[in-house]
Design a protein around this nucleic acid. Structure first.
Lengths: 224, 224
DNA sequence: CGTCGTTGGATAGCTTCACTATCCATGATT
DNA sequence: AATCATGGATAGTGAAGCTATCCAACGACG
């Protein structure tokens, strides 16, 4: 298909597709003449993925390129590629080094990780993300001790277990890697949205607002 | 204290503080002469809060103003103010209205909320956030059915329950509201970072990477 | 009292990001 | 052959989040 058709089928303007091509987010099309190129279904899929990462996952364009490059890096093993890809995702500012709040946060983080039985991996960008967020909370005197953070860790463990199970029963390894990254990014807003909805419900329940909703979940079992 | 001291104590440049004053994120100082103003501890605290929301919570400056304004709106009840404040937090693009993927996502969302026994609140911005994320997943043929989303919902419920308990045992009502907003925003990176760490550990465990860490947590029981 | 550095308000400028619009040589279509 | 579409190169746009410059009024000091 031509650029125009790619644009129509994806709902992305040709100007934007050209921009993504320039930025290396999409591989160039198969050159059919000196001035025309041909794109296939794979391009369409990739374009949709990029779009989802950028718009839904709020990943910067430059970062998306890094992430997708890491996924396709043939020279590394699966786990390393996944680590590299997820590691280049946005992870906020680095923690302020010489700050007492940072020191406290480091300590809390280490303690939580120990209690959860995950090792201590300060080289993981997510660790810095955790520490700087805890430091910001500490600086404002908000509760952020081990006991406060642990429930989040337990919830995260449950989620990760579920996610890895889902990923394992997917198709090819390449697809699997891409899927792992896509699910990591695209389920973030799902999780955050559900948390906000849960908060709203819980706040309503506790402080009694407007129309009460049913208190017990009606579910009996889950069916894929 | 003067602007310069406020700057020094917060680590934020005077230029940036002036910018926040202009944007209405900080209330103006007490004017002591025609050309000089005096700031107090409350300003310092507020500045730190703004900084945390903007830098750690990735809340746009304009949005932070709306959120903080809503928190201080004396004309509404607690739950409404909280709803207004959290509702003006960033929530991604609105779901594409005439898209089949959106329709499927709406259905999944409704089903999940039903199974969890939370009502259906399409007016909540978090609901749109949930639907557009699910739609993006669906468009890419990634698993996003009810059974896949439900575990996130359960995790969110556990988290929200913990959070409301924490908020309830805080001080004054005004502080409580501000705390609710701050905790909502500032625990987002905590949760996401822990999820990524949990994923990394789980991936390592399943696909056997590098130095294995202890498999059982050293704690004895969990307190849900 | 005059000088000189400091303060803080106003204004304009800068940088990054994510696109978007224009040009134009070539190629396809009628 | 005449006209329209394609796609690469280049420059421009607008929002966001600061940052730098001016400048009149203060205020501490000699």
């Amino acid at each position: 298909m031509r650029l125009a058709e790619l644009s129509e089928r994806s709902g992305v303007s040709t100007a934007t597709i050209k921009y993504y091509l320039r930025e290396g987010l999409l591989p160039p099309g198969r050159r059919v003449t000196a001035t025309q190129a041909e794109y296939d279904e794979e391009h369409l899929r990739r374009l949709r993925l990029v779009r989802a990462l950028v718009q839904v996952g709020r990943v910067p364009v430059a970062t998306a390129r890094e992430v997708l490059t890491a996924v396709e890096d043939e020279t590394a093993g699966q786990v390393d590629r996944l680590g590299a890809a997820v590691g280049s995702l946005p992870h906020g500012p680095a923690p302020a080094p010489a700050d007492p709040a940072t020191a406290t946060a480091e300590h809390t983080a280490a303690e939580v990780l120990r209690l959860l039985g995950w090792g201590h991996h300060p080289e993981n960008p997510a660790h810095g993300m955790l520490v700087s967020a805890l430091a910001a909370l500490g600086r404002l005197d908000y509760p952020c001790g081990t006991a406060h953070v642990l429930p989040y860790g337990r919830a995260a463990a449950a989620i990760a277990e579920h996610e890895l199970a889902v990923i394992e029963e997917l198709d090819a390894p390449t697809t699997q890697l891409e899927a792992a990254v896509a699910l990591t990014v695209l389920y973030e807003p799902v999780l955050l949205a559900l948390r906000r909805l849960a908060q709203a419900r819980e706040a309503g329940r506790r402080f009694g607002s407007g129309p009460e909703t049913n208190d017990d979940p009606p579910h009996e079992a889950e069916g894929r």
